[in-house]
């Protein structure tokens, strides 16, 4: 087919009905996924006893707030990454404040924890719950987000998928932290971060497969 003919036939096609915007679709996918995740959390894990008192300690509160901040920032980034040539903006720099804060908290905990106690705090007693839970709780949200993003046009599907993984892992980790009773950054600073990285990597792999267009 000649290019002029192609143009003529494309222009002659009736206008597709205006669907919901990408942002609205993503919000829908996120909400649906988060609903499943919350249900899963409520049924399988549930909040820790004495949650209200525990979060009055800012170091404990940080393990919920930091992943939440990460989720919000990466959600903004993933939406920008899903349209061609939209610059990622300030959020792509601000987001590094989250790992910086985690590192700061880790160093602070290392210094203030007696030498004999450090290893025990670091290993904790729930790595085998923490990592699978963060991954499992992320999956519904990641699925919902990726479904919505398929309507987008990411010019870097791997990056877009990784950001979707980061956003869903941030949200899932914030939810998981309400169950987890390991309150030292020596534990959560390492193992939460590892869980989030696993889901981010998973998002990158899935993005490479699902977000091509």
């Amino acid at each position: 087919m000649k290019t002029e003919d192609l143009i003529a036939s494309l222009a002659a096609e009736p206008l597709p009905p205006a669907g919901p915007s990408l942002e609205r679709r993503a919000a829908g996918g996120l909400a649906a996924g988060a609903f499943v995740t919350l249900a899963l959390f409520a049924v399988v894990l549930g909040p820790r006893p004495g949650l209200g008192i525990a979060v009055s300690d800012p170091v404990t509160l940080a393990k919920t707030v930091l992943p939440l901040v990460l989720a919000v920032l990466s959600l903004g980034l993933v939406l920008r990454a899903s349209r061609p040539a939209v610059p990622s903006g300030a959020a792509s720099r601000i987001i590094w404040a989250v790992p910086a804060a985690v590192f700061g908290l880790f160093v602070w905990a290392f210094v203030t924890t007696p030498a004999g106690q450090r290893l025990a705090d670091f290993v904790g007693h729930s790595i085998h719950v923490c990592l699978p839970s963060i991954t499992a709780l992320s999956l519904p949200i990641l699925g919902g987000l990726l479904m919505a993003l398929r309507q987008g046009a990411p010019v870097n599907p791997v990056r877009c998928g990784a950001l979707a993984g980061l956003a869903s892992a941030g949200l899932a980790t914030a939810i998981y932290s309400l169950f987890c009773i390991e309150d030292t950054p020596l534990f959560y600073g390492v193992w939460y971060s590892l869980g989030i990285l696993i889901v981010t990597g998973l998002g990158a792999v899935l993005g490479n497969r699902l977000l091509r267009w």
């Binding site: 290019t3 192609l6 494309l10 096609e13 597709p16 899903s82 061609p84 046009a153 267009w213």
Partner: peptide
């Protein structure tokens, strides 16, 4: 051109 057409909503 087809991609531009299919993704013009972005």
């Amino acid at each position: 051109l087809l991609a531009v057409h299919a993704r013009r909503h972005t």
